[in-house]
Design a protein around this nucleic acid. Structure first.
Lengths: 245, 245
DNA sequence: ACTTGTATGTGCGTTGTCGCTCATATAAAA
DNA sequence: TTTTATATGAGCGACAACGCACATACAAGT
């Protein structure tokens, strides 16, 4: 596999792109470009974090694992945020797992460097805290959505969120894996996906799913999608708006 | 209604109790004791927050309100935490409502005073961020619990959480209100509560519910309760352990 | 070409929760 | 005491999601 990192740039991550000149020069000395491969575990539930990650093209899923082994996604981070919040929040770990859901690139920052920069109390700190709040909204909305909305709506939401973070419309993902994310049965996903395909909104074959009609998906999705997106824009829009289309 | 505030003390709130001498003297000049009455709305969804609240005997519920009016609780704060996280996270507001679920007392801190103290980057800041992380765990677990566990288990969890924050075993709360918290039908709560009552774990009459057998409830509850509690203890235990029994 | 592994489709019966309606019981107000 | 409001109990049918079992279809390797 060839190194694709040269075409990348820290500014592909919205948070890094919004830093001051001073901060970005300080950080670029310690930011390490990394290839985040599909399935890679960035941190395990309960395990002390060593680094935070700023995805650029990769998408990382925050997964909750129950005692009986069933899983559910509580949040998704791409180039809109940072993975490893527990490091600057002070907990050093969290009871969830971070898994690369869509392979790509990102930047790694060591715990030490992160704390040093965080304690400068500049824009960096501000952005990290704002992103954390945005993530809380995402998690909250997931809680509510799980409670009140049918699988098909949730699948739409999940697809739209992923499309926002992807640079393209193709998702390498089986129904089985999606089911693990949504915390439902594989069959449930197959049926919902089958419906969406009949409606012409998506198409899929053996592990790849393509979003065909974004407007159509937005018409199907529950309010939860927009609430989270609007809140992200409200919180971070002033800093990153120029980078979102 | 008589003022009951004289018997109260900021140190009844775990976070305030864990501050340094210096911090607490600085803050006690600006902390205002307040009576938090049942049903009082501390902030509305989307409304700019003016103050944060440190409950002492009151319990505050973080409620999510859907477009169709249905509600669901995403978190609960009592004397273990602080209400109004959006103020120091930088968002100034959040898409949820904070309602007093159990009347009592607390301390109010103005936005200005909060920010001033937060920016001192002392224990106060550290505790607020740690509590925020604990709250994220609570919200995450709610998301997962909503997805995977039946109403009766969730009711057990909700009762235990409340008991932890109460100084007694009696909850002034109708099935209808509990249903709004859990985001389920009133009948669902009635049936679950009826079951628990048959098992002798609780008893209730018209708007008051009494926890009779804590060990029994702990035997019934899903893992979600303990995960959240353990994570709180892990994060804040070093600072507040002496104040929890 | 054939086998094997994996992805998706389909069809059960079961359960939990839903929305609805109405009955009953208790508390508060008149 | 009587009336009124509110809290809880109970009984429908409907439906979404469950767990399970198995069929089919496609892909990769031998």
């Amino acid at each position: 596999m060839t190194k694709v990192l040269q075409s990348d740039d820290p500014k592909a991550n919205y948070l890094l792109a919004a830093l001051s000149e001073e901060e970005i020069t300080r950080l670029s000395a310690v930011l390490q470009p990394v290839s985040l491969k599909l399935g890679m575990v960035l941190y395990e539930s309960g395990e002390q974090l060593q680094d935070v990650y700023f995805p650029t093209t990769a998408i990382v899923s925050l997964l909750y694992i129950m005692e009986n082994g069933s899983t559910a996604e509580i949040g998704i981070t791409g180039n809109d945020g940072v993975v490893g919040i527990a490091l600057f929040m002070g907990g050093h770990t969290t009871p969830n797992r971070a898994v690369v859901q869509s392979g790509g690139t990102g930047y790694r920052l060591s715990s030490r460097a992160l704390k040093a920069e965080f304690d400068q109390a500049g824009i960096f700190q501000k952005l990290l805290l704002l992103y954390t709040q945005a993530l809380m909204t995402q998690i909250s909305q997931t809680a509510v959505c799980n409670r009140l909305h049918p699988i098909e709506k949730q699948l739409c939401r999940w697809l739209l969120i992923n499309q926002d973070l992807l640079q393209h419309n193709e998702l390498i993902m089986t129904h089985e894996l999606i089911a693990n994310m949504l915390g439902v049965r594989r069959e449930g996903v197959s049926i919902a996906a089958g419906d969406l395909q009949k409606k012409g909104l998506i198409k899929y074959v053996r592990g790849t799913m393509t979003m065909l009609d974004r407007a159509g998906l937005e018409a199907e999705v529950c309010e939860c999608y927009e609430v989270v997106r609007n809140e992200y824009d409200r919180l971070l829009g002033p800093y990153v708006s120029k980078f979102r289309q």
